[in-house]
Every structure is written in C-alpha cells, then in structure tokens.
Design a protein around this nucleic acid. Structure first.
Lengths: 337, 337
DNA sequence: ATAATAACGACAAACGTTTGCGGAAAATAG
DNA sequence: CTATTTTCCGCAAACGTTTGTCGTTATTAT
C-alpha cells in the first residue's frame, strides 16, 4: 500500500537523468538511446509507474471524456442508446460522464455547466421536454466543446445532430392502418417543445392526403408524457361522438399508459380501438396488449452514429479544421407484430 | 467566440498585481483588502473568468468525479439506483462517470482501470455476474480510491457495501406462499457468482424449516439470467413428476421470461403455477401476468445510501482518518399485488 | 587529423492554480 | 516620535507532464 505514487521525476532522480528524457523514453521518442530507454522502462515497470492523467489532461487540454446529457435512463430507448455511445467511446479510450435532466431545463443547464467545468472533450445530448432554448448548449462553442444532439433534437440551425426519419415511417404507419380498414385515426402527440420539427404529424397528414381522407382536428391531441396527461388526452378522444378506431401514439411508454386507461374505460383493445406507436421497446414483448405496430428507432445505432460524429468533430477541432454542421438522419422501420 | 479563455494570470497582468493575490481575492481570503478584492472580482466578471478545473483537479488531487460501474442500465433497478446516486452526487457538486460491464469481467476490469486513470475520487460498483474475484477493485486501495459496492456485493471482507436484507423478505415470501396453500415451492436462483452470500436461498430454507416442510433439492434450479438459461431451468422443473405449484424467482426480469415460457408450455399462470420474485420493477404493472408478489429492494435508496457512504469515505480520506469497513443493510419489503 | 554531421540527452519553460512565507506599508500603542 | 503590531500583497515553489531549444559527445566524411 504505497502512499506516494511514482512519478517521472522519481524515475529521473533514481536514474540520474532528466525528467524529459524519461518522458521521451516512455514515449519511444527517437532521440533517446536504446540503453537509457531500456533502463527507464525497466525501472518504470518495477515501480509500477503510471502516468498521472490529471497532469496530462491539464497539459494537453484534453480529458478523454465525453459528456452525455439525456432526459432519463428509465426508458429503454435511452439506455440502449448509451450502449452504443459507451461502446464507441471505449473504443476510442474515452469514458462517459452521465447526467439525467429528468425533463427539467434548469437541471439540464446545471449538467451542461458541470460538464463544461470538467472540460469534457465533447457532449452528446438529447434535450429535455422543457427545453425551450438551447443557449446553454450554444455556449459550449465558446469553449470549443462540440455538441451532438440525438433523437430529441432541438429545432435550430447550426447544430450537429443524429436522428431518425420518422416522417416516412409515420406515413407508412398510418397507411397500414388505413389499409386495415381504419377511417378515423387519431394522433397523440408529445409536448410542444418536442414537436418543433413534427415529423410524426407531418407523416400523419401526408398519409391522409395521399388517401384523400379528411383530417379531423379533434382527433389530434397531445400529452406532456405524464400518466395524467395521457389519460386526459385519451379521455378527450373517447368523448367524441365519432370515436377514432386507431391511435398513432407518441411512444411506447405513453401508449402503455393509454392502453391501460382505455381498458379501464371498458374498451376492448384491438377491437374498439388499436394503437400504433414509436420506439418498439423490448418490454412490450411482455405486456398483455402491446401496440399493434411500433416504429423502431434503432437507439443503439443512433448512439453509435452520434458518438462517431462527435469524435470526428473532436478530431477536426484538434487539427483546427472547419467542421460543417452535420445532420445525420437514420431510417426507421415500422415493425408490425 | 473567444479563442483564449481568461486565466488568473491574465487578470493579474491587467491589474498589475500578482496571480496569488487574484486567486486569494476570488476565494475571499481574509488577507486581501476590500479594494483590490472588488477590482479583481469586477474584472473577473467582465472577462467571464472561470477557473480551469483541470488545473485545480491536478493541483488538488481531486476530480469531483465518482465512477459508477454496474452490469447494465437496461434493468430498471439499476437505472433507478443511478437516480439516487446522481442526486446525491449533484448535491455535492460531483458528477458521475458511468460504465456498464455487461456482466463481463474483462470489461469490468477495463472500466475500473479507466476510472482509476481518470483519478475518480471514489467508485460505486455493482459487480458483474462473471466477477469471480475483485482484485481490480482491491487495487484501488493503492490509489486511495474508496470503493462502495451496492446490491450485487461480492462475498469478501474488508469492503464497504450497501445492500438489501433479502433474507427476511425471502422467508416472508415463502411463508406467504405456504399460507396460500402451496406445498411445493421451487427456487430459481441466479448464477453462482451472485449467490456467494445467498440470502434468498437461506430465507427459502428457513421458511421451510419453520413450517416443517421438507426441502426438495430438485426444486432448486438456477439460471445464468439469459433467456435460454431460464427456460432450461423452468424445463427441468416442469419435467418433475411432482411439479412445483409456485416458484420463488431471482428477479422480475428472469420471472417475465419464465412466465412467458410457462405459458408457451400451456401452463395457466396463477393456477398451475405462480411466481414470486424480487425487484418489483415498475414495468411489471403493464404485463399480462406479473409475478404475484415481488420484493421491493428500493434501488433509489440503495443508491443514495451508497453515495452518502462514499462521500463519508472521501471526506475521511482527505482528513486522513481511519475508516472502518461499513456494510449497510437496508430492509426490503414484500409487495403483494 | 580536422571538420562536418549525427546521435543523444539536459535545461528550462509551460499549462493554471494554490499556498507557505516573508516583507513593506500602514495603523496603532507606548 | 519610536516601537510594535496589523494589514495587505508579492515571491516563489509546487502539482506531473510535455516539448522546443541547445549543448555535448560520438560518428562519419574529407
């Protein structure tokens, strides 16, 4: 249990050479002779020398750390995304700082601030549902910390992002419902902050247009993602004279709440009303009445893609190159049960 | 978009005072006059000065970072635990480095190594199911990095840990089954590495003893937590001449797989066979046949408790006090549906 | 043998901050 | 008006590493 960790200086002192020589020897610098190089490495091994990374971080202005800010880890979508992020990070010998905003803007700001203080080399973020502006992220430009948004991408220009094309699969989802005889398809959307670029709704509209079906505005409702919010939204649909026979719903979690509530209201799922959703999270395998179909958004791939983009940006930064804003769009896929 | 971030030196240069004065002024050191203190703070604010944390980390030998190593984030148990950990960490102005072992010892070792290199101030860990030794954690003593295990605690002395008392609730769970008329209760345990201190089994045994019921060894089976492993275990129970009417099962995830499999085998859940489990994860609310009862292990509280313990250890370390090994045991609670 | 070149390694500065110590000016006491 | 204390601030070292520059010695060419 040694108290003092060995340093380069210590090795230098013992070998009666200078610290710079030790440093270069350990890095196989060509201007160090074989003899001294061997001696240094031997002693370093004996002493169990390990470089003090904090000193290196400080000197190199790099921490080999990326920050990850996301709404929560509860949703399997995000925990799957982390897998992709962590795998790529580890390949680059990076490690991941994590922070959950819990859909609270103030907390998100605090997290970004904290990550900046820790001098992360880059940030990957999926914004909270209460994020009305992204100044706290834009600030990072002042510190040359690149930011890549994924999945929940703010509606702004001059950002890097990775997301899924939900438009095409939304069209596909609604068309599938129409083909299965549904004439009145409701649309349950998320909170307005997450709808700035509302691909889901656009796809929903497009499918109606394509099939020359009228869009009934009263069939379009929204939830703040809370249980109560979802129940209220479903309620308003059930109170309509002409009820919908199908619902395209923001995501699987919301849908599970919606289905549970519809059952409480004595509706028979998939007969009186059926649900199609987004995310395709694995837990739906175990539930009694899962959504009939769900749009797979490939969270792992999104995570991988976002992290690879981030590393390209970090690379560009160190080589002082201009990096154009990249907005990568992955495709999604309607999975029918 | 300033290229150079302002430093203490810069402030000192502009004010024609020394860097040490600036540093002390910013820290409200008593030996700095009010006039210069004001001047420094004013300029610091104007320049938008922010201390370079990496320099401070380096100097202070502290990074205000804790490392968290756990098997995965998919299980809601762990993601709930993180909430507790993150909340306490944020209160202390700490931030969390995360790493998933995916139940792989080599990856766990790599993560611990990486966190050591990043000079985390402490580590919280829940070991992987393939962790046969904890040398990589014990090594941390050489670096004076305290380690607190939680939930999945290795069977070793000289460690700090936070876990749940599963013994009492296991007794309670089996007694509850017995009172409900079950005479043959099977026990589905986890991989042997996680059973070193097998409170679940001990409780199972004790309940049988208490009620003078014989223990049938063939009713005790185990799974490696994989779907196949679980199915194999259930199979072996179903092939018995005298089948069990109830199963006490390692955790909810395993149980969901088990129930699904039993249904495939045309068993009627809660009639032919019923399940009692551990973890009480929220998703079970949505499933068709959830376990009849589940032992709540309060992951959030475990996370809070582990983190508080860790901070006490970090505190002790800086004040160079001896810290006795603490093994905190929280109570669990059998939740009956 | 002498001069030019190459090979090797030392010196010192730098990254930004904190902190022990000492010293000058100002304030107070006698 | 001198002696003592207090107030305020600068100096310099330190944390461990990397890196540009320069000087020495050994090697080669002439």
């Amino acid at each position: 249990m040694e108290k003092k960790l060995p340093t380069i200086k210590e090795i230098a002192r013992r070998l009666n050479i200078s610290a710079s020589t030790v440093s270069r020897a350990l890095h196989d610098h060509p201007s160090i002779g074989l003899r001294t190089k061997m001696a240094v490495k031997k002693l370093a091994a004996e002493l169990n020398y390990e470089p003090n990374q904090t000193a290196i971080f400080f000197k190199q202005r790099k921490t080999f750390t990326i920050g990850l800010v996301l709404p929560n880890l509860r949703e399997e979508f995000f925990s799957a995304a982390i897998n992709g992020i962590e795998d790529v990070a580890l390949d680059h010998n990076y490690i991941v700082l994590i922070g959950q905003s819990h859909d609270d803007l103030a907390r998100e700001q605090k997290l970004v601030e904290s990550m900046k203080n820790h001098r992360v080399d880059g940030i990957i973020a999926s914004i909270s549902s209460s994020t009305t502006h992204i100044e706290h992220f834009e600030q990072m430009k002042n510190y040359e910390i690149p930011v890549v948004f994924f999945d929940r991408v703010p509606d702004a220009k001059d950002i890097h992002s990775v997301s899924c094309n939900l438009y095409d699969s939304s069209v596909e989802a609604v068309e599938w419902l129409i083909k299965n005889g549904h004439k009145r398809v409701a649309f349950l959307q998320g909170p307005s902050t997450l709808n700035m670029k509302n691909e889901r709704l656009d796809g929903y509209m497009e499918a109606h247009k394509k099939h020359k079906l009228p869009v009934d505005e009263s069939l379009i409702v929204s939830t703040d993602l809370s249980l109560e919010g979802t129940q209220k939204a479903i309620d308003s649909l059930l109170q309509l004279k002409k009820r919908p026979t199908a619902v395209l719903s923001f995501n699987d979690y919301v849908t599970l709440d919606a289905i549970q509530y519809a059952r409480q209201k004595k509706l028979t799922i998939n007969k009186d009303i059926c649900f199609v959703s987004y995310a395709n999270v694995p837990v739906t395998q175990y539930v009694e009445y899962p959504p009939l179909a769900s749009v797979e958004q490939f969270p792992y791939d999104q995570g991988v893609s976002a992290t690879e983009l981030l590393f390209r940006l970090i690379e560009k930064k160190t080589s002082r190159l201009e990096a154009p804003y990249e907005n990568i769009v992955l495709k999604s896929e309607l999975i029918i049960r």
